[in-house]
Design a protein around this nucleic acid. Sequence first.
DNA 1: GAGTGGTCTAGACCACGCG
DNA 2: GCGTGGTCTAGACCACTCC
Lengths: 243, 243
Amino acid sequence: MNESAPAAFAYKPLYVQVKDQLVRRMIDGEWQPGQLIPSEMELARQVGVSQGTIRKALDAMTTENLLIRRQGRGTFVASPEESRILFQFFRIVPDSGETTFPDSRVLTSARSVAEGTEAEALGIREGDDLWRFERVRAIRDEPVLVETIRLPADRFPGFGDLPQIPNNVYGLYSQRWGITIARASERLKAVGATAGDAARLRCARGDPLLEITRIAYDLENKPVELRVSRCLTRTTHYTSELR
Amino acid sequence: MNESAPAAFAYKPLYVQVKDQLVRRMIDGEWQPGQLIPSEMELARQVGVSQGTIRKALDAMTTENLLIRRQGRGTFVASPEESRILFQFFRIVPDSGETTFPDSRVLTSARSVAEGTEAEALGIREGDDLWRFERVRAIRDEPVLVETIRLPADRFPGFGDLPQIPNNVYGLYSQRWGITIARASERLKAVGATAGDAARLRCARGDPLLEITRIAYDLENKPVELRVSRCLTRTTHYTSELR
DNA sequence: GAGTGGTCTAGACCACGCG
DNA sequence: GCGTGGTCTAGACCACTCC
């Protein structure tokens, strides 16, 4: 392939180099979410490696949920519109087991300035501009959680001018700014409801809430969203699979 | 390979059949935790397939944390003694980020009878015998969580005769009864501390706790342990990676 | 140097989706 | 029937570990 030979001190297998090159096409917007990408044989010709090596790169991207492969149809760029992706990043489910996705109602939205912990989490400097908005999410009209989302202003130009914010914000990030959320890291704690939480969630002050602090990363592994959710878990729970 | 041809209505790729066959060797105790298994070439000869097919089966088992492969040395059965396995099933970490593993102190241990929800979780019948024990776990002498563990008595004969219960119970399950915990499923809720929790965790009654309900499964995907942990998260948190 | 797992290649055939 | 991804094979060479 048309790439410099791997240096002895930093050996990278060919298929990893190929994978990085293909991810780059997604970052650059050449391959957009939902799009059908060329077949394995075609990519092998383009990149100049064997079909088996292309396959290894595509398989790695598939296990990272960047691609979706369909036998007989082709390989597609994963899209945040699809329901399977929604649930990839939403782990609060009703105890009953049904798979309902919550509605959202935005409470406040404003431009502000990053404080120390916010800046650290988002990899920006203290004092840099942020978009910050707060919303309540409900399942079957029962409020389940209240969350505050913070976005670095320079990555989301014009965010404040939006007439409204959709339920699925990862779809919005993708469509409006070409930002794909590739992975996220969460920290969970149990906390007591504040007076504000209590009013919004129709519970008592001090009631136990599940607090989820999430940092979401883009394709280049840079943090792009900080989200703190405080959830009522009377009739719902957070699921986690350990393997 | 010496296996009947796949039926048309239930096609299973050859490498999956091989994988099932190799997992069977672990279930039957032919391959024990920590043991070096035969090389790819040797297995290919034994099973009667190509080395590439053996490799696919071994890779699948490696991603499920059943095997550990070391270039130049060989392939080993994963062992619950190794630190990496311990943290695979322990997601409570200090906020500071250090990786300390908690001590345990057993409070109560008794034989009892399965109630409805316990029986359902463990896939046994209501009224079947259970071992049930409760312990407090501490990091640096600070109590962090109190947990109750329930085991189906027929899978763990002689459990009640043990002089003491070690910190790492998954190592015990493996050594004493040949039971390997392959995966676990957790449900998290925020709850208020009971009077009993408060006394054991040195907190106030009603303080918010993170309640983790875990069902752990063996190599045959049968539930073998039900565990409910109630955790103080003042200086610790539960981590979760979303991909 | 011998043996192991890891990568890369090339080619054949199978299962699937669609026209 | 054609093109796609999925499986299976066979063989070469590379990187790593240990003697």
